[in-house]
């Protein structure tokens, strides 16, 4: 049963990633694209964790943690850039 559920969940998350990617391409404004990228990386975390469950391996955790940290820093840096035209003050 867990197998079937995992398959459904993987498909749902993949669909979510496709929708985010669509928003990333379509835009229309710059903050929209940042938001889409932010959603895309959170979806990636979900996908990695599901893959870890699927394969029964805890190794994917480190990758997910790194993506979470780097994704947050990336979002903040991009937003700051739009706010000030400069990242560091």
């Amino acid at each position: 049963m867990l197998e079937t559920v995992l398959q459904i969940a993987l498909i749902a998350v993949a669909l979510a990633m496709l929708l985010s990617a669509w928003r990333l391409i379509v835009g229309p404004s710059k903050p929209d694209r940042i938001l889409a990228l932010d959603t895309l990386y959170i979806n990636t975390i979900a996908l990695l964790i599901l893959l870890g469950l699927w394969l029964g391996s805890a190794l994917y955790f480190e990758a997910a943690l790194l993506i979470a940290v780097m994704g947050f820093v990336g979002t903040v840096a991009l937003s700051k850039y739009l706010l000030r035209g400069d990242i560091m003050e």
Partner: peptide, 29 residues
């Protein structure tokens, strides 16, 4: 486990549907 995974995947999908479908940036947020 199955319930948690399904709920999680469902909400993730709903979030992205909202991102794709809602009309302006602030609602998409």
């Amino acid at each position: 486990l199955s319930a948690l995974i399904l709920i999680g995947a469902g909400f993730t999908l709903v979030g992205s549907i909202g991102l794709a479908k809602l009309p302006d940036f602030f609602t998409r947020l």
